[in-house]
């Protein structure tokens, strides 16, 4: 029995010299899995038009009622989206959101997707209500086709350290 105790001590002693598995967060950042569900993004087409057609399917799918949107008619002179309507006001309250991804699944246009960003801390409640400007992809992030299915086909652990 004493031998077993000593064996246990030897195991922990060997562990002292093993390389640490800790990710030293602010300096080192973990590479996320492609299906990571972080802050939302609103996608655009290659020509810069918004994909969202203001159908509010995401809002009705959302289990925590985090999405609020008001749709407006597109005008032929300034079409915001290729559809009939677009979302004039689109807000997601991140304090309500549970990052379930149902909005992403419900969207017929692949407009709303959950991105990789997870550094969402803030100091005031208002900061957590995101408007369209906060979510629409910027030109430098690249517009174009976004294949939700392809992303979801990837193995969950790919890209993890």
């Amino acid at each position: 029995m004493l031998l077993e105790f000593l064996k246990g001590l030897a195991v922990t002693f060997r562990h002292i010299f093993k390389p640490h598995i800790t990710v030293l967060y602010p300096e080192q950042k973990r590479v996320d899995a492609p299906i990571f569900r972080g802050k939302h993004k609103l996608n655009r087409y290659a020509d810069g038009q918004e994909r969202c057609v203001g159908c509010a399917l995401c809002a009705s799918a959302c289990p925590s009622e985090a999405i609020y949107l008001e749709a407006a008619e597109n005008t032929p002179e300034h079409p915001v989206s290729p559809g009939e309507r677009y979302a004039e006001l689109y807000q997601i309250n991140l304090l309500r959101c549970i990052f379930c991804g149902y909005c992403e699944e419900a969207c017929p246009e692949n407009a709303i997707v959950l991105g990789p960003e997870y550094e969402l801390a803030g100091t005031r409640r208002e900061e957590f209500v995101m408007n369209k400007e906060d979510m629409l992809v910027k030109p430098e992030e690249g517009f174009g086709e976004y294949d939700v299915e392809a992303v979801h086909e990837l193995p969950a652990t790919e890209g993890l350290p």
Partner: peptide
């Protein structure tokens, strides 16, 4: 520190 190393983490740093 030592408890950290035993648990393959760096401990307070």
């Amino acid at each position: 520190k030592l408890l950290g190393w035993i648990q393959v983490r760096p401990g307070p740093n």
